[in-house]
């Protein structure tokens, strides 16, 4: 069934988009991530112009992360104070990212930078997570502790000044790395069209030592706002949010997410992390392949006068 997208100015198959949203929603519910890192590359593979894929991806992330954060809020696995601090940094980062996005687009290098960022971040985060989770699975098989949090173990981050207490996370840590992490996530969110959950979740766990059960809810909470902010700014500055496309993805996404979350509760933490790592690496490899293999045509067209 065809539907015409008013902003992308093309006719697409509605069923494919609903299914795409549903599949990504399922995975995002399963792993507790927004799913932006999957939806944007999928849209690009489906010939949606990258600039529209990024901005519309951010819009769909708002829906999936809101839906997910609601569940965590009710369960009490959401640290509002930590989320708000991350958000403050996030808004600053996202603002900067929007300008970089528009600049790269004029330069004709937007697609390249998006691909490179995806390959670099997905590849390294996925790789680290895979190593860590496989080790954790090994430890649990040999009967050891699988907890990531070992009291008394501190790294350089815990020696920074301006400390703040986060009760829900049982954490007493400097706000500098919290704001900085938020800013980096915000920057990536606006350039890559992702919520940043796949970076946020491991960073909160490994760098800030936030308890795993609070991490996903808190990450989703800040992603709602960063993605919403990104959506508004992209719509205003670049006119690249296609609300019809976003809505189709959202409807599929929120439906899939609930089923994913249900199944996710039955899996063990380290198994989930290993699966997510494998998925992240697969997307990174797919994008790297595009970058290094000779394209079908070395020429491309863009309306307007870019350099």
């Amino acid at each position: 069934m065809g539907i015409y997208l008013p902003i992308a100015e093309m006719s697409v198959n509605m069923v494919i988009l609903l299914a795409m949203g549903g599949a990504v929603g399922f995975l995002s519910g399963l792993f507790g991530v927004g799913g932006g890192f999957l939806i944007t590359p999928l849209l690009i593979f489906y010939n949606i112009p990258p600039a529209i894929a990024v901005a519309t991806g951010a819009n769909q992330v708002v829906a999936s992360s809101f839906s997910g954060a609601l569940a965590h809020f009710k369960r009490g696995t959401l640290d509002l104070k930590l989320g708000t601090m991350l958000l403050a940094g996030g808004i600053v980062g996202a603002s900067g990212g929007i300008y970089i996005f528009a600049y790269l687009r004029r330069l004709g290098q937007l697609d390249l930078i998006i691909s490179l960022l995806y390959v670099a971040f997905l590849g390294s985060v996925g790789g680290l997570m895979l190593v860590e989770s496989v080790n954790a699975i090994r430890r649990s098989r040999s009967g050891g502790s699988t907890s990531l949090r070992r009291p008394g173990q501190h790294n350089w981050i815990h020696r920074l000044p301006l400390k703040m207490r986060f009760r829900t996370s049982k954490l007493f840590v400097s706000v500098i790395p919290v704001l900085g992490l938020g800013a980096i996530i915000g920057l990536l969110a606006s350039i890559m069209g992702v919520g940043g959950g796949f970076i946020m979740v491991p960073a909160l766990i490994y760098l800030l030592k936030v308890p795993t059960n609070v991490v996903i809810g808190t990450s989703l909470f800040q992603i709602i706002f960063v993605a919403a902010f990104t959506t508004v700014v992209h719509a205003t500055a670049n006119h690249t949010v296609d609300v019809v496309l976003a809505f189709l993805l959202m409807v599929g996404g929120v439906a899939g997410a609930q089923y994913g979350a249900q199944i996710g509760q039955r899996l063990r933490g380290e198994q989930l992390r290993a699966l997510l790592a494998a998925l992240v690496i697969a997307v990174a490899l797919r994008l790297a392949f595009e970058l290094f293999v000779r394209p079908q045509s070395v020429y491309s067209l863009a309306t307007g006068a870019g350099a």
């Binding site: 819009n59 708002v62 829906a63 999936s64 809101f66 609601l70 959506t231």
Partner: peptide, 11 residues
């Protein structure tokens, strides 16, 4: 409105 639509859809 796009962002609000997303919030409503998510809810």
């Amino acid at each position: 409105l796009s962002a609000l639509l997303a919030v409503v859809t998510g809810w």
